[in-house]
Structure formats: C-alpha cells, structure tokens
Design a protein around this nucleic acid. Structure first.
Lengths: 342, 342
DNA sequence: CGGCGCATTGAATACATATTCAACGAATTT
DNA sequence: AAATTCGTTGAATATGTATTCAATGCGCCG
C-alpha cells in the first residue's frame, strides 16, 4: 500500500503522460485537490489552487480528456454529420462551426452522414450534441439519440418530429422576396429550379415562391429538378431553356444550381444573363459575388446560424429535451444576374 | 461483495449505457469473456464468442470507445488540422479523408490549425495521428507530438525536419510541365503568381518553373504574390497586367488564384483569356472544369493522396518513428485558358 | 500412464480522472 | 462559552473496458 504507483513511476518519461498523481506529489497535495483545481466552481482555497496550477504548468500537465469524459458522462465533443461538401454554403458553415466550437472549448468530430453505423459509433463518445448539416433525420436515428441522451440539432433542415432542435434560414421570407424582386423586374414567365424534392428547405422555398405568385394572380412556375447539384442543375436548365415557352426568369433553390444555370444559359444558349434572362440563387456563397457570375441571391446568415447552433448546444446541455426551432432571417442581395426592378 | 453492481442495475434504463457486465450476465459468462469477444485475435472458443455476440446484439451493446481508448492508450481518432477551407482542393481532400477514415473505422477530429492551444488538447485524446492539411509545422508542435508519441502527417507540405511524414504532389514535375506547355504555346513573357512565399508547396513550384525556364535560356518570370487567396490574387494580377512589359502568360501557384486572375483579366482588362493571355493553375479543383473558366491546370490526385495518407496512418501505428515522404505525381490538364501548343 | 505444454477462462488490476463521504477546523450564532 | 454551520480536505469509490495473472482442464508425447 506504500508505493504501488511509485513503482510505475520510473519508466514514465518515455510517454508524455503526466497524471494528476504526478502533480499532486509535486504540489504536496492530494489527487482530489488537483482534480478540483481544474474544475471551476469546486471548493479549494485560492493559494492552494494557484500552487497546484503552478506545479501543473511546470510538469506540463493537462487533464486527460478521455478519463474526464468517461467519468463525467459527457465528452465536450460535438458530432457533425455532413452529407456532401460540394455546396460552398456548408463549407463556410463548417469552417465557422469549427472556429466557434474551438473557442468554446468543444471538439468537433466530423463524419460522413451516409453510413448510419458510423453515427452509432459517434454517439457512444457521449457527445454533447449531434449537428446534422442539411441532412434529413430518420426516425430511427432520432430514437437512437433519444435513448443515448444526445440532443440533435438540424442545421438548414426542419423536421415534423419534436425530438430535435433546428436552425434554419427564413425560407418563406426569402422565397417571397425573390418572387417580389423578379415580378418587380417585369418578369412573368417564371421557373423554379428545385433541389431535392423532399428536403424541407426545398419545400419551403418552393412553397413561398409559388404562394407569392398566386397572390399576384400568376400561375405556378415552370419546374425542373436539379437536386441541389451542379451537374443535375445544368441538365435541368437545358430542359427549361429548350421549352417553347422558355422562362424569362429562373429561381434556383441554391447558389450551386444558379451558377450551373448561368453557365448553361451563357455558354450553351448564348443568352445574356441579367438582360434576356434573370437568374436568382439562394445562400450567397462567396462565388456569387465573383464578377464572372454576379449572382443575385438571398443571403443566408451563416455566421449567425452557427452562433445560434452553438448557443443551442449549451442550452441543450442544461435541459436536453427542451428543443427549439430557430429561424434566422437573411436578405436579398441584388447583383447583375437579374434585371433590376423597373 | 454479492451484488454491488445489481444495486445500480435498476435505474439504468434511462440512459442507453449497456455495459460489458450486462452482456456478461445475459450470456452467463465473465466480463473478461465479453471483452475478448470484441477483441479480434483474443483467445475464446467460437461458440462462446457467438453466444456473447448474440447477447450483445440483443441488448444493443457496443464497447464504450472512451473506456477502450483510455486503457488501450490509443483512441482510433485522427486529428485533422486545416488552416482554411477557402481552397476547394482542401475541401475535396477533407471530404475524401472523412470517407476513407470512416471506412477504416477511424474517427476524424477537426480543429482550426490557427490556435496551437487547441492542438495541445487534441493531442491528449491519444490520437492515432495528426494530419495537417497544408499547414506548416512549427518545431514546437513537432516536439509536443514526439513527446506525446503522436505521429504527424503533413499533407501538401514538406518539412526539413525528419520527425514527420508527408504526402505531397510532384511539384517539381508539375511546374516543369506547366512551363513546357506555356513555352510550347509560344509564350515568352512569363509571370509567376506566387502563394505564401514560405510554403514548401509554393517554393517547389516556383523553383521548378524557374529552373525549366533557365534551362531554355529564359530569364526568371515576373513575380507577384497572391498568398494562395482569391482577393490577394486579384490585386496581384492587376499589378502584373498594369506593367509596361505585360506578361503573356501567368502560372498561378494554385487554382483559386488562377480563377481570380482570369476574373481580373477578363472583367477589368477586357482580355480574351486563352488568346491574348494564357493563365494556368494548379490543383484541378472542380470549378476549373466549368466552362466559365476552362482553366488549364496541373491536376493533383487528391484521392490517391488521401489513400496514401490513410496507409501511412496504419503504418505509423506499427512503427511510429518510421517516417515516409510520399510523392504522388499528377498530370497536366489542358483547357481553354491557355493557348495550345503550336 | 504420467508429465508437459497449451488453449481457455475468471478474478483482479490498471487506465486517469471526478465526485461522494466523512472528518476536521474555523467562524459564527445563541 | 457552547453549539452549530460551513468551507476545505483527503480517502475511497466510480466510470467501462483491456489485459495480466493464475488456475483449470485438455490433448499429446514420451
């Protein structure tokens, strides 16, 4: 009982594993005291805490996050599932999220949202939350998370279930703003280039757009599906522009598809985009501002949405079942790809 | 001593924490046996293993990765540091890496490579490796990793230290191929739009380009710095094109800058890119193939580089100090932004 | 048939820390 | 001055699993 730990002490220098016990010995206190020194709000006299922290700094000690997570039942890791990074809006989001989480002392575990098995694994890390970037929520996964006590935050998606929080842009407002802008420019033959038909984001944007047109006494827009992807959107644009009743304006459900539409219109049909045909996107990705495209688009406030996501993570840590639905309004950014309001 | 664990048993249903002990009880074996059933290569008779796995499946048991990592001294997590995701080449790499690691049963912990403190934290997760995407290696960090026993893999960067592995493209070959292509197109007033001057990637590309020109009896190219960034590259391009001895060809150290150069040349100077001015990039990001740019560029094989990275992770797991330098050759992809060889 | 190795197994220990528990002393209250 | 509360503290326990250790039983060979 005298020195079971000291026996292990000598060959320790090879690894950088300095533990609480080393610090405790150095500072002449108990292991508990060292642990408390690194736990804000725990009971410890100030000067002793300082002495411990000094000893820890001297030895280069940092609490082992694995051991800490194991006993606390919470790891400070946030799981982030992303379907694909082809859309620059999600790349920007990921970058922002990475920075914000880091600033909040949280770790970011990234995984491809395709394979559900890998999600299962990530759940067992006792993660603080699961953030799904534009990924639909299967009720199966929702059940897994509920049983594991892991709150889900849907980013840029909603769900009809009430077992997840979500952070979304104001799709209804955005779509109506786009419709108003196009009608104000004198357009009457409108088209909607849709994303994946079952995505809540797409549904809301299409519904808002169509609703506004109806209110103005116009028929529903032409419609083609580009699945939120560049190549599919190119094909969809071709179909639209080959129609006898060619549209004079296309509202695309995201910027990636809008850039594809501009490309096809300009290079395959020789159309002067912004004069003979207006194209409007959604998201306001960096490329939208490039002179080559000058894309009019509804800007989603990624930074604000990420901030809300991090706020939700903290809030759900307190009350894991108190789910919120946060809506962040954006604003229309008018550039050269659409005819200005007369 | 009879049932200290059964006392804890009743209120367990709230969390999804089914442990080895639950499985052991269900299967009527010891805790050790359950652990062995989930450890390939351990000694356990076949039918007992099956019975245990069946019990585990019935209870929905999965080994707790935190506890497992703690005792094994290795977490199966790979730390990935990325400076910024503005360059689509690294976005594509991240996507590929995410998929490949997942397929290999490894987890990906992403962190912003700016703040060294956060790296310190990540190191303590007993990660299998630290992959730095186009991030230079400070000797301080190298020391930390060596002491922690964490192998470093530099992606798209080299280092003169021998305490890290690296996976890079063949910059010398690429730069020379670009030079040959431009000279073959009849260009004689060449410029190099450089990235960050101290990046190994930039140094090698510039050296290869300049060396080839020298071999052909040509002076060194004009030179401006765009820091691998779009905006800075726009400014640098303006400076180049305003010179009295305006270049007739620009080799850009990456595609992002090349797209900026095309943008400025075309929209600010009215230049017909591909006829009056050739612009060549490096990386072959998806946008390079878009008709709006049709960028000639040296294609880096991201998929192959990622595969090599994962292979290195496994290799370094066996012998952590056996560092390798892997060079993956690419190939020149000629598109419309450069005048073809006469 | 006896001894020797070998695979199999459960008990015990270790991984590194957070937190409960009980004790202790000091400060405050009655 | 005695009693009571409260902040501090170290010992002990818990987190969930991998692995060492010793014991057991079996087959094989001499």
């Amino acid at each position: 009982m005298v020195a079971p730990r000291d026996a292990r002490r000598s060959p320790v220098d090879d690894a950088a594993s300095v533990t609480v016990h080393d610090v405790a010995r150095e500072a002449g206190v108990s292991q508990s005291a060292v642990s408390r020194a690194f736990t804000p709000g725990s009971s410890l006299v100030a000067d002793k805490r300082e002495r411990i922290l000094a000893a820890a700094a001297k030895l280069g000690y940092r609490p082992n996050p694995l051991a800490r997570s194991l006993i606390r039942g919470r790891s400070g890791i946030v799981g982030v599932g992303v379907a694909n990074l082809a859309n620059p809006f999600f790349v920007a989001t990921l970058q922002l999220l990475s920075d914000r989480l880091d600033q909040n002392g949280l770790r970011l575990m990234l995984f491809p949202a395709q394979g559900e098995p890998s999600i299962q694994d990530v759940l067992h890390y006792r993660i603080d939350a699961l953030v799904l970037l534009s990924v639909s929520l299967s009720s199966l996964l929702a059940g897994e998370c509920r049983r594991a006590g892991v709150p889900i935050i849907l980013y840029n998606r909603t769900t009809d279930q009430d077992d997840a929080s979500c952070v979304v842009g104001d799709n209804a407002h955005g779509a109506r703003a786009v419709a108003a802008h196009l009608l104000g420019g004198g357009h009457r033959r409108l088209a909607f280039l849709s994303g994946s038909p079952d995505a809540s984001t797409n549904i809301e944007r299409e519904a808002g757009f169509t609703a506004y047109l109806a209110e103005q006494g116009l028929p529903p827009p032409l419609r083609e599906c580009g699945h939120f992807a560049f190549d599919a959107a190119m094909a969809a644009t071709r179909r639209l522009l080959l129609r006898p009743d060619r549209p004079d304006a296309i509202f695309c459900a995201n910027d990636t598809m809008a850039l594809a539409a501009i490309t096809v219109a300009r290079h395959e049909f020789g159309i002067d985009v912004g004069r003979d045909l207006s194209i409007v996107g959604y998201d306001d990705v960096p490329m939208a501002a490039w002179p080559s495209f000058a894309l009019t688009t509804y800007s989603q406030p990624a930074a604000q949405m990420v901030d809300e996501t991090v706020r939700l993570i903290h809030a759900l840590r307190e009350s894991p079942s108190n789910h919120e639905a946060v809506v962040c309004p954006g604003k229309l950014v008018v550039r050269g790809s659409s005819r200005p309001v007369a």
